[in-house]
Design a protein around this nucleic acid. Sequence first.
DNA 1: TGCGTTGTTTCACC
DNA 2: CGGTGAAACAACGC
Length: 312
Amino acid sequence: MPELPEVETARRIIERELTGHTVTAVSNRLPKLLRYSPIPTLDPLVEKSVRAARRRAKILVIDFSDDLSLMIHLKLAGQVSVHRADGTRHTAGHPVPNPAGPYPHKTTHVELLFDNAAILYLSDVRQFGWFRLLPTADVGAVMDSFAFGPEAVGATPITPPELQARLARRTIAIKLALLDQSVLAGLGNIYVDEALHRAKIHPLTSANTVGLPELGVLLEAIVWALECGIEQGGAKIIHNKAYPIDGFPEVHARVDLPCPVCETTIVKTRVGARGTYLCPTCQPASDGDKVGRMLTGDADAELVNAESLSPA
DNA sequence: TGCGTTGTTTCACC
DNA sequence: CGGTGAAACAACGC
């Protein structure tokens, strides 16, 4: 489930381990991963050296010499793993393949060999991700086509009034608005649940009813969640079960476990089509809630009602 | 074995 | 045109 922290972790690994090194060989066992790529194979990367690794939203970009760039979207289940000649490994993204196990795994599709004997493995058990090889000069235009909103964390963080302006005409659930990459870039299902819990906001609250002070709290909570994730090199969630490190994540993938803040049992519901975890005590339903407004706000009623909104 | 999984796109409709 | 809600899609593991 690579989101901003997992992609940022991958970026840092590539920057640290591979900058200045030259590709000596390339293999790609699943050419369809280049289905959107302007250059249809990775072969031109041979003899090119890594100049930089950068990130925008959840897209990783590796810049090579001779005006070549590789854009990578890990989607649900992509993984980046760099193995050095001395045997040390650095892995980011999805937990499959097992970072401590044998490589290449059957889900490892791309291998890049470098002149320092390091190997970059790109794996994707779901095959939903993509790679695009293109001139560096064209990366900006492709990024523009995605119309990403401001980065959720970065040098010039979005301010509460800016976020309020972006949500002003949005009546959808705040959780869905935060997952919209054109509103704010980088959040996915894990970190949005964590941020809303931290900010004590129910995920079904209509986006344009969240006041300025609450948006300030929410932005702080978003930064907190993403920085927790980056510090940990990505949240550890396997088969929909969280394995918290230092108490993070607090609610996501922790159904039926106690809320670390108030010990109320964490419930799982649905917002849009997304599995959503929340603490019914910390995050009470409010008048602005899309479903909760006609109910008591109790979690079971929400679950039933939310699911009855979609056809069987 | 059919469902769940997520980031993103698409579509009908208001 | 912009927003909404839902479906679609990618492919696999359980």
